[in-house]
Amino acid sequence: MELLLAITIGIVVATSVYLMLDRNVLRFLFGLVLLSNAVNLVIFAAGRLTAGAPPLIADGAYAPDGQIANALPQALVLTAIVIGFGLLAFTLALVYRTYKSLGTVNSDEMRLAEPEDTHK
């Protein structure tokens, strides 16, 4: 199972790196989305893969009975997903606004803030 997950993560990371090498900012963003999901899988795998029950404690009990899954990586992944969602939604809106106001999504053509030196 670990091996399978590791291979999956590898493929996702490779794909995202390929996408992020593109000059099109939108494709770069898609790469970033993929990469952040790959990282979530990494955290999940780092918490060890066990076939445990959900980490819930029955009413009145002080400890769960039987084997339960590690809850911490799940909490970390959830937090990371939420934060990642917010950041990526912001970035998508930013890319869209940039496209509307600069008329391009090609990162090479974005030279407004750093204009090329005219007097050489």
């Binding site: 917010g86 939604a89 998508l92 809106a93 869209y96 606004r97």
Partner: peptide, 9 residues
């Protein structure tokens, strides 16, 4: 977020 995106697009 959703309202802003919807209005924008």
């Amino acid at each position: 977020l959703v309202f802003a995106l919807e209005r924008e697009i």
